[in-house]
């Protein structure tokens, strides 16, 4: 297979933490430049762990991460620096992800220093980026705790983008935002994507956000991808019962109570002791004897969709 130069490819990776919890259990995914991929899951699904593995913050115990054709297995220090110029991440809580004793100016200059870029030459570009993000120069000499939460979020985004990465991993970018401003942030991300032709991975539990701004989506449950495909197709006609339940549980404005909700019973099992067979079988409304013993594999289906279920839902649902 020819190595593609404008993708991140994850091949069958697993990440296990000290203590033996396998947070990511054999996942393959691909993110291309110019595309937005959504990663959805509940707590314990391993979505943040997977995202961190893409930026080299988690070391996979098996499998490969290939960025722009370069295999990251056995990362050296030089590789890592290279990787971080290509792939950047913004973290869930913007304020606590900014070093508290650095001014905004120092925070924005630091990525340039780390990557040996000429700060003076690059500074106009930094200011341009700030303006694009709606940050004013008056904020440069403030400390993170002196700006609003929304501004801190913009600073974190600016920091990730000043070194011109090709990929941006965004962990819960709208967490804690009011509805009246979350749209602003999402519009901003899509502007930036077009301007810098970024590949964006959005990790979120918010299905409305994922449904609206991503091209493709991967649904995770207990360390596995259970379904993947073009977002609209998956949202319109989920093939995996978990996807359907997740979509159904998502609160939408429905004062007439027209929608019949599928409420899953039981709790999400602990990732340290995933159920045998299909990991979803303990909560699946359609469980069959086969599901208890045989783990379904993620198989290719029509239109670039994949799902891991022995008894998939009808496609014309």
């Amino acid at each position: 297979m020819m190595a593609e130069t404008n993708t991140i490819e994850v091949e069958n990776i697993s990440v296990t933490f000290a203590g033996g919890v396998q947070a990511v259990a054999g996942i393959s995914l691909k993110l291309s430049v110019g595309e937005t991929l959504g990663l959805v899951g509940e707590s314990g699904s391993g979505k943040t762990t997977l995202a961190k593995a893409l930026v080299g913050l988690n070391r996979p115990e098996s499998g490969r991460v290939v960025v722009e054709g370069r295999d990251l297995t056995g990362l050296t220090r030089a590789d890592r620096l290279w990787l971080r110029r290509r792939v950047q991440m913004i973290f869930q809580d913007p304020l606590s992800s900014l070093s508290p004793r650095f001014t905004i100016r120092k925070l924005l200059a630091e990525p340039l220093a780390i990557h040996g870029l000429n700060a003076k030459e690059r500074w106009p570009a930094v200011l341009d980026l700030m303006a694009r993000l709606g940050l004013s120069e008056a904020q440069l000499d403030k400390f993170p705790h002196q700006v609003s939460g929304g501004q801190a979020r913009r600073v974190a985004i600016a920091r990730a983008l000043v070194i011109d990465p090709s990929f941006l991993i965004a962990d819960e970018p709208t967490a804690g935002l009011d509805v009246s401003v979350q749209g602003e942030l999402l519009n901003l991300l899509s502007d930036l994507q077009q301007r810098f032709s970024l590949g964006i991975l959005i990790v979120s539990h918010n299905l409305n956000v994922i449904g609206r701004v991503t091209d493709r989506v991967a649904i995770m449950y207990l360390g596995k991808v259970v379904e993947e495909g073009p977002t609209r197709a998956v949202f319109r006609a989920p093939r995996h019962p978990y996807t359907r339940a997740l979509l159904s549980a998502n609160p939408v404005i429905d004062p007439e109570h027209k929608r019949k909700k599928i409420v899953l019973s039981g709790e999400i099992p602990s990732p340290s002791k995933p159920p045998a067979g299909c990991r979803f079988h303990t909560r699946c409304p359609n469980v069959q004897p086969r599901c208890l013993v045989e783990e379904p594999q993620l198989t290719e289906a029509e239109n670039g969709r994949r799902y891991a279920c022995h008894f998939p839902l009808e496609s014309a649902a």
């Binding site: 913050l57 971080r84 950047q88 973290f91 992800s97 900014l98 650095f102 780390i114 920091r159 990730a160």
Partner: peptide
């Protein structure tokens, strides 16, 4: 603290993270 992880994600070396 998340900001140390954020610095690592940015590519900062161990020494830089320690010192700054």
């Amino acid at each position: 603290q998340p900001f140390l992880e954020a610095e690592r994600a940015l590519g900062a070396s161990g020494g830089r993270i320690m010192l700054f």
